[in-house]
Design a protein around this nucleic acid. Structure first.
Lengths: 226, 226
DNA sequence: ATCTGTGAATTTCTTCACAGCA
DNA sequence: TGCTGTGAAGAAATTCACAGAT
């Protein structure tokens, strides 16, 4: 990630990565609170809904600006808008999904795209047997059309849902087509140029981390060595 | 997470969370290197394969013990074994999946379970229409059987792949059944007792984080205010 | 000569605690 | 009085840089 010129144009100081990673959580918690018709939340209540501490929440929000009222709390709708704006969810992001296996299907049917600022803009697969079929109302296109698809849809974000073996190659095609943000479900570390942003979702890794802690609690019978 | 009694029985100092989260990545990178028949890796080479800096890798590994040889590097097989042992991947963990929608199907067919220390121990769904069907060779059972399933399989880890609305309730049933490690795909913050470990995987959150950075690079035409 | 292991320095992140407003 | 906003303190994580082993 680039992030040069800290403070250009007297801009608010850069928001820490850790905070950014929590903003979507706050956004969703707020949306749920708004749905219940609540107009105002305290940092305590919102923090509880988001699963963080109140101090953390206040600190995070204070980095975006002073959107609360002392003695009262935060206006739900207003804060929702501010966080949404900060996250770039005021526009709708077209997302291209590559790989129409089980996971690709799940993603294509995923209801969380719409309504959260994202739209399935296209499905792509390398497998000729998949190409031309329709999944969740969207036609599956060949990789050869990726460049055109990205250009037509002005897509900036792509999801890789291919097997591990195909991921790096697909990644290179995506980058070549102009994609600069990638969500990678394939269990490989993608090599990308500096200006491309990759986030990794890896089920086996997550399970391993859980297994580590689980093992700490219930170690297998193991000699207290020496 | 509990983690009391730091240093009980003269144990090695606790390994930082950030390190633990990287161990599965190292483990996989090493496995790939081992498959290529390479016997020894340097911290530079392994770090590159894992997508981290060499200093970070050496620091992380040094926390597990001194498994390298100065001037030479790390023995691939040995290090693989040590990390696997540390992560608890020497045993096979039975995993219960709740929710047999698109995501549940994808998980059931996921090839990354076996061979990485995990085994699909059971599929559960609330929907009576799903119960009794067979997915990926595994019969789908009702939630009522969760307790028995967990007990029979001695499962400690579960994956929630239900819609958001059902997640909290499913979570409570799982915890009641004795599950203490949960991987949650539903877009909700689960409320759990302290001793239960939850990890969250959320596609919309990940996309939002990407959108944030993307927006920073290509802001919508926006007046340079005031 | 090479590459690990690790204290120390640095940076980042979290938590505290209280001043400042409504 | 109640709750936010935020400097300051504290903790955690990363990076440096070099001593130490082969």
């Amino acid at each position: 990630m680039g992030e040069r010129d800290a403070g250009a144009r007297r801009a608010r100081a850069a928001i820490p990565d850790a905070t950014i990673a929590r903003l979507p959580v706050y956004h969703r918690a707020l949306a749920a609170i708004a749905d219940r018709g609540v107009a105002t939340v305290s940092s305590d209540a919102l923090a509880a809904a988001a699963g963080v501490g109140p101090a953390q929440l206040r600190k995070d929000l204070s980095l975006l600006g002073s959107y609360g009222t002392r003695g009262v709390g935060y206006d739900v709708e207003h804060l929702l808008g501010q966080i949404g704006h900060e996250l770039g969810l005021t526009q709708e992001w077209p997302v291209v999904v590559v790989g129409v296996g089980n996971l690709g299907h799940a993603l294509a049917h995923y209801g969380g795209f719409a309504g959260r600022g994202f739209r399935l803009a296209g499905l792509v697969d390398v497998d000729p047997a998949q190409v031309g079929t329709t999944v969740a109302g969207t036609r599956v296109r060949p990789v050869a059309e990726l460049g055109r698809l990205v250009a037509e849809e002005q897509a900036a974000i792509a999801i890789i849902a291919t097997p591990a073996a195909a991921a790096q190659q697909v990644c290179e095609v995506l980058v070549g087509a102009g994609i600069r943000s990638i969500l990678n479900f394939a269990p490989v570390v993608l090599g990308v140029p500096d200006e491309v942003d990759v986030r990794q979702v890896d089920v086996a890794n997550e399970l391993s981390i859980l297994a580590f802690h689980e093992q700490r609690r219930h170690p297998l019978v193991e000699a207290v060595h020496s």
